[in-house]
Design a protein around this nucleic acid. Structure first.
Length: 799
DNA sequence: CTTGACCGGGG
DNA sequence: GTGTACGGTCAAG
C-alpha cells in the first residue's frame, strides 16, 4: 500500500537479534502510523592503508572480537568510492547486525595493520536511517510498503520512499507546568486547543480546577489527558530538567511508571552531556528552554531567559510578579489558592503561546537539517550545522571527517584564539542623528565571495589561488567549495522565499510556514563560520574561520573609509555595522550605499539599518570609550540598549530600574534630571520607601551550605535561616536582602521572609550608584556626587 | 593575565 | 547506546 505521511520521531528496536527502525508518523488525515525499516543495516567505512583487497582479506581471516572476547559479526563488506574532501578514495563499507556493535567492530577493524582509519562509526542509527533514506521529518513523503499487524492505527514495512505532493498534517499540541511544594506535585496545569485545566490536590474555587484526593490520583489523570487527546506535541518550559524529572520521581514514589509514549512506552531519559532530556516515543516532546538558549538567545534583548522575560519580549505579555516564596506561603496557609491556580495556568498558557510561535521554526529547522524535532529543539548551533553537513555530505557521496578526540579538541582550543571582528572605539558621550548601516549576512557572503572552505585550503595543483597577505595559506578558486556551495544554496533559496512572502497575506498559514523556513535558512547560513572555528567540529578549519573574520574586518574598514571620504563622522562600528552621525546622512544614504556596494565583490551587500535620534556611548574606567556598550533611541522614543550588563538576576530590581531610567533621560539630553532621578532613588532608599521585591537579590544555592568553602551572602542567609528551623535545599534560588546592623555584607544577608529592615547604604553604594555611574560618569558625575556629597559645579556640559 | 569554579531554567 | 557534548562570567591564584 502507499501512504502520504510525515515522520515526527524515529528510533530502533532489536527483535530476535535483528534491528528494525520504527518511524512514528502521521498521515495528512491524522492517522498514526509506524513505518518499520527492516532492511537498513548499521555500517561504517574503513579506509585501507594500501588498497581495499588486502584489507578485505584481513577482515575475513582475522577473528574480530570486542573487549570481552565476544566475536563480532561482519554481515557484509562492500567496496565503495567515496570522496574525502576533493579526493576520491576506494573504501570498504562494513555492515554489522546491530547498531551497538558498530563502535566495537570499528575498534577491532581500526587495529588491523591494513586499516588506515575508520569513518562514520558514531552516527546514531535513527539519524543514519533518516539520512540514508532521504527522509526529512516535517516534510511529507509517500511511503510504499506492506501493512502488518502492529501498534497504533497502522504499521507498515517500508519498501520505498518517494516524494509527496501532499500538505503536512496538523499536529495537536499541549503545554503543561507543575507546581511543586516540599517535593510534591500539588498542581499541574495543561493548556491547549480547547483545553484549560489545572489539576490540584486541594479544592480550589475555579471552574478549570479538577481536585484530587492525593498526588497519585492527580498523576494518573495527567497521564490520561495526554493519552486521551492523542497529543502530538508536548511542550513546556525547562520540562527536560525539571518537570519530567519530577514526574518520573513522583510516579516512582507511588509505585507507578511514567509512560507517555504513543504506544505506551515509558518516558526515556536521554543523557546528552550536561543535560538529560525526556523522550516520549511517537510524540514530540519539545522543551522550549533549550531551543531558546541555543538558537534564539543571540537575537533576544532579554538578558535572562526565564519564561517571564522571554514571554514579555516575544509576546508582549506582562510580567507575572508572584514570588516563589509567596506561593509557598499561600500553599502552606491554604489561602489564595485561586490565585495560585491562576498563576499555574498562566505559565502553561505562556508556554503554549510561545510554542505557537516557535514550533513552526523548530519544524523547519528539523526539515532542513533532517533531524527529528526532538533533536532540532535541543541541539546547539554547532550540532545543528553538523547534522545538516552530514546529510549534504551523504548526498554528495562524501565521507564525513571524524569527530575530534578529547585531546584534539584540547589542542584546537589551546592553539585556538584568532582575531575576531573589527570594533571601532567610540568617543563616549551623547550623539544626535545616528544612522546605522550593516552588512547583509557578512560572514556567509564573505565565504561565498572568496570560496572559503576547508577542502580547498592549500589544495595541491591549484591554479587560481586566493592569498591574503597576513596568512601563509590560500584558498583554491578553481572549483566552488562545499561550504560556499551550501551557503549559496541557502541564501538563494531564502531570496526566493522572501519574494514569495511579499505576495502572501501575512496572517496566512502559508506565510507563517515560509517565514519560518527562510528564518531556518538564515540561522543555518549564519552558523557555518562559527562552526568552522568550533573545536568540536568534524569539519574544523581554523584557517577558514580566521580568513573569514580577516576579510570581514577588511570590508568594514573599507566602508569606514568611504564614509570618511564622503565627509561623514563615523561614531562606532562593530563587526558588520557602522554608526554614522550627521543630519544629512539619511538623505545621502543611497549615494553612500552605492559607493560601498560597488567596491564589494558580488554577493556582498551593505544595507541601511535605521536612523536614531540619539545615541549614547559610555566609557571604560580609563576614560576611553567602551566597546559594545551603548544605547540608542529611535524617533518613536523606543530604546535599544546593548551591553549594559547589570540586567542580571544577581542585581536588585531597584538598581536595574534606575539604570534604565538614567539611560532614558540621558538619551533625551536630560542629564541633570537623570542625576536627580538617582538622587530620588537614593532618598527613597534612605526613607525605607522601596518595596522589598525591588531589593531582593536572587542567587542559586547549588550545594548544602556547609560545603561552601568561601562565604557568600546567599549562603550565610541560608545558614541563619536553618538556625531558625527553615531548611533550604540545594538547587533552590535564594532570595535575600541585605539588612542593617554590624559586620560584613554576608553577615547581614537575610532571606526575604526574615528580613525586618534593609540597609539603605548597601543598596545605595553597591547597587544603585555603581549601575547609574556606569552611565553618568561620562557627564562628569562621580559616585560621591550622585550620593550628594560633592559639589555640582560645571556638571552636565560634557559629551 | 590565566585558571578554575560556578551558573543557567524550573519550584 | 553508532554515549558522556556549552559558553560566559567572576573570583582566586
Amino acid at each position: 500500500m502507499e501512504l502520504d505521511l510525515t515522520i515526527m520521531d524515529a528510533d530502533y528496536v532489536i527483535e530476535d537479534g535483528e534491528v528494525k527502525i520504527r518511524a512514528f508518523s502521521k498521515t495528512v488525515e491524522g492517522e498514526n502510523v509506524i513505518v518499520e525499516d527492516r532492511s537498513l543495516q548499521p555500517y561504517f567505512y574503513a579506509v585501507p592503508r594500501e588498497e581495499t583487497g588486502t584489507l578485505r582479506e584481513q577482515i575475513k581471516e582475522e577473528e574480530l572480537t570486542d573487549d570481552d572476547g565476544e566475536e563480532l559479526e561482519v554481515r557484509n563488506i562492500e567496496k565503495k568510492i567515496r570522496k574525502d574532501g576533493l579526493e576520491e578514495k576506494e573504501v570498504l563499507k562494513i555492515e554489522t547486525e546491530i547498531p551497538a556493535n558498530v563502535p566495537k567492530l570499528r575498534y577491532a577493524v581500526s587495529k588491523l595493520e591494513h586499516t588506515d582509519e575508520c569513518r562514520e562509526f558514531d552516527i546514531p542509527f535513527y539519524k543514519r536511517f533518516l539520512i540514508d533514506r532521504g527522509i526529512r521529518p516535517g516534510e511529507t513523503v509517500k511511503v510504499k510498503g506492506e501493512q502488518i499487524d502492529g501498534e497504533l492505527d497502522r504499521t507498515i514495512i517500508l519498501e520505498e520512499v518517494k516524494e509527496s505532493e501532499k500538505e503536512k498534517p496538523e499536529f495537536s499540541m499541549l503545554a503543561f507546568d507543575l507546581e511543586v511544594i516540599d517535593g510534591e506535585i500539588v498542581m499541574a496545569s495543561m493548556y491547549g486547543e480547547g483545553l484549560e485545566k489545572v489539576l490540584s490536590t486541594a479544592e480550589v474555587d475555579k471552574d478549570y480546577v479538577e481536585a484530587f484526593e492525593g498526588e497519585k490520583e492527580l498523576l494518573k489523570r495527567f497521564q490520561e489527558i495526554i493519552e486521551d487527546r492523542d497529543t502530538d506535541i508536548v511542550t513546556g518550559y525547562n520540562t527536560d530538567e525539571f518537570d519530567f524529572k519530577k514526574l518520573r520521581e513522583r510516579f516512582q514514589a507511588h509505585g507507578m511508571t511514567l509512560s507517555l509514549g504513543r504506544n505506551g512506552d515509558r518516558v526515556k531519559f536521554d543523557r546528552r552531556g550536561r543535560f538529560s532530556s525526556a523522550r516520549l516515543k511517537g510524540r514530540m516532546h519539545l522543551d522550549l528552554y533549550p531551543f531558546i538558549t541555543h538558537v534564539l538567545a543571540p537575537g533576544l534583548d532579554s538578558e535572562t531567559l526565564d519564561l517571564d522575560s522571554v514571554a514579555e519580549e516575544m509576546l508582549g505579555e506582562n510580567k507575572n510578579d508572584v514570588s516563589f516564596e509567596m506561593m509557598q506561603q499561600w500553599w502552606e496557609d491554604q489561602e489564595n489558592l485561586e490565585e495560585f491556580a491562576e498563576y499555574n495556568l498562566k505559565d502553561s498558557e505562556l508556554a503554549f503561546r510561545l510554542a505557537k510561535e516557535l514550533v513552526p521554526q523548530i519544524m523547519e529547522l528539523s526539515r532542513i537539517t533532517g533531524l527529528i524535532p526532538f533533536d532540532a529543539c535541543r541541539l546547539t548551533y554547532g550540532q545543528l550545522t553538523e547534522n545538516f553537513l552530514l546529510r549534504e555530505a551523504f548526498n554528495r557521496e562524501m565521507m564525513a571527517p571524524n569527530r575530534p578526540t578529547r585531546n584534539q579538541r584540547r589542542r584546537r582550543s589551546n592553539q585556538g584564539a584568532y582575531e575576531g571582528g573589527f570594533v571601532y572605539t567610540p568617543d563616549s558621550g551623547l550623539y544626535t542623528d545616528v544612522s546605522v548601516f550593516d552588512f547583509r549576512s557578512l560572514y556567509p557572503t564573505v565565504m561565498v565571495a572568496h570560496n572559503i572552505s576547508p577542502e580547498v585550503l592549500d589544495l595541491d595543483g591549484c591554479e587560481d589561488r586566493f592569498v591574503m597577505e597576513e596568512f601563509d595559506f590560500y584558498f583554491c578558486q578553481d572549483e566552488q567549495g562545499f561550504f560556499p556551495e551550501l551557503i549559496e544554496g541557502l541564501v538563494e533559496s531564502r531570496y526566493e522565499l522572501k519574494s514569495k512572502m511579499k505576495e502572501l497575506d501575512e496572517d496566512s498559514m502559508k506565510y507563517e510556514q515560509i517565514y519560518s523556513r527562510q528564518q531556518a535558512q538564515k540561522i543555518l547560513a549564519n552558523s557555518f563560520y562559527g562552526y568552522l572555528g568550533y573545536d568540536g567540529a568534524r569539519w574544523y578549519s581554523k584557517e577558514s574561520a580566521q580568513a573569514t573574520t580577516a576579510l570581514g574586518r577588511k570590508y568594514i574598514e573599507d566602508t569606514i573609509e568611504v564614509a570618511e571620504e564622503m565627509g561623514f563622522e563615523v561614531v562606532y562600528g562593530d563587526t558588520d555595522s557602522v554608526f554614522i552621525r550627521g543630519e544629512d546622512v539619511e538623505d545621502r544614504k543611497e549615494d553612500f550605499l552605492d559607493r560601498v556596494n560597488k567596491l564589494l565583490p558580488e554577493f556582498m551587500e551593505l544595507e541601511f539599518e535605521g536612523y536614531f535620534e540619539t545615541g549614547f556611548f559610555t566609557s571604560k574606567a580609563s576614560g576611553e570609550g567602551a566597546k559594545k556598550k551603548y544605547a540608542l533611541m529611535d524617533r518613536e522614543g523606543g530604546l535599544k540598549i546593548t551591553g549594559f550588563e547589570q540586567v542580571r538576576r544577581d542585581w536588585s530590581q531597584v538598581a536595574k530600574d534606575t539604570q534604565k531610567e538614567v539611560l532614558r533621560l540621558v538619551l533625551q539630553d536630560r542629564i541633570s534630571e537623570a542625576a536627580e532621578a538617582v538622587k530620588d532613588t537614593i532618598q527613597g532608599l534612605k526613607d525605607q520607601e522601596v518595596p522589598v521585591e525591588d531589593l531582593t537579590i536572587h542567587t542559586t544555592l547549588t550545594k548544602p551550605p556547609e560545603e561552601y568553602g568561601s562565604t557568600a551572602p546567599h549562603v550565610e542567609a541560608v545558614k541563619k535561616a536553618s538556625k531558625r528551623g527553615v531548611s533550604i535545599e540545594p538547587e533552590t534560588t535564594v532570595n535575600y536582602v541585605i539588612t542593617r546592623g554590624g559586620g560584613s555584607i554576608s553577615e547581614r544577608a537575610e532571606l526575604v521572609r526574615f528580613a525586618e529592615d534593609y540597609d539603605p547604604d548597601y543598596y545605595i553604594d553597591n547597587q544603585v550608584v555603581p549601575a547609574a555611574t556606569r552611565v553618568l560618569k561620562v557627564f562628569g558625575y562621580t559616585e560621591g556626587q550622585l550620593k550628594g556629597k560633592g559639589k555640582q559645579s560645571g556638571l552636565g556640559r560634557f559629551g
